[in-house]
């Protein structure tokens, strides 16, 4: 039995799996690029302009500018998480794609690594589109906001790995609704996204900083897009990188445990 913390050996062939998913994505690019485009508009109009009419400023920052980085953070989370839960589950269970691929020189570790890289890539693509829309609204400061793009990759990898852990242990595709509704949806509300955590009792901030990855991602994005830097960024980034590495290792080992019997 593999230890879930043992370091997997990954070959560069993992990129073939990434290429496979990219090829499918590009074939249907119209349906794929439209949602993030619309989503950025909707969030900004409904929450930014709508609520912003009443809530003019938070900590001296216009409300629209305050939530803009949160919109990006949530996009990072959702695109990678849903890709590596429902998307990966369909490829694994219904399409039997993983079985087909591991009959070639690729190992299951390579396949999962490729899926995680793909999840992260999807986050980057969504963030780039949304960044474009938000820039048109004049709520992104440049050039610092450009750093959001590489960070979207790391954040995407984090959520892809988190998702893959659930995919590895889920008994069915329906059971994936639990982490989606009980973990991801609350996280998009309670991670300092639409209001600062400081207005809640301190325990909320501690829990969010300890357990909710989105808190760290939104905090860093906000520092970059406003911009408003603070030394706490070092802490946020360290947390993100450490948890990403840990989750990637666990996700690959759990998947191996599920599929190699």
């Amino acid at each position: 039995m593999v230890n879930i913390f043992s370091i997997p050996r990954i070959n560069r062939r993992a990129w073939h799996v990434w290429r496979r998913n990219l090829t499918v994505f590009v074939k249907t690019w119209k349906v794929n690029f439209f949602p993030p485009f619309v989503e950025a508009f909707l969030y900004l109009l409904a929450i930014g302009v709508g609520i912003g009419t009443y809530v003019k400023e938070i900590d001296g920052v216009p409300y629209v500018n305050f939530i803009a980085p949160a919109i990006l953070g949530i996009a990072v989370m959702n695109s990678a998480f849903f890709e590596c839960t429902y998307g990966s589950y369909v490829r694994m269970y219904y399409q039997k794609s993983f079985d087909a691929i591991i009959a070639t020189p690729l190992s299951i570790e390579d396949v999962i690594a490729g899926e995680l890289l793909w999840g992260a890539t999807k986050s980057v693509m969504y963030v780039v589109i949304m960044l474009g829309v938000l820039t048109l609204f004049g709520v992104m400061a440049f050039p610092t906001s450009l750093f959001v793009i590489p960070l979207a990759f790391i954040g995407g990898l984090l959520f892809a790995a988190l998702a893959m852990c659930f995919t590895a242990i889920t008994p069915s595709i329906d059971a994936l609704n639990y982490p989606s509704f009980l973990f991801i949806t609350p996280m998009s509300l309670f991670s300092g996204t639409f209001f600062p955590l400081t207005i809640l009792p301190p325990i909320f901030s501690y829990v969010a900083l300890a357990l909710l990855p989105l808190t760290h991602i939104v905090a860093v994005f906000r520092m970059l897009t406003l911009p408003a830097f603070s030394w706490t960024m070092v802490f946020n980034l360290t947390w993100i990188v450490a948890v990403t590495l840990l989750l990637c290792v666990i996700a690959i080992n759990l998947m191996r445990r599920r599929l190699i019997v």
Partner: peptide
């Protein structure tokens, strides 16, 4: 695996292609 070819019992062609 580089040197073998496999026809699995279960048909697992890629429906996206």
């Amino acid at each position: 695996k580089h040197r073998i070819g496999v026809v699995p019992q279960e048909t697992n062609l890629d429906p996206d292609f």
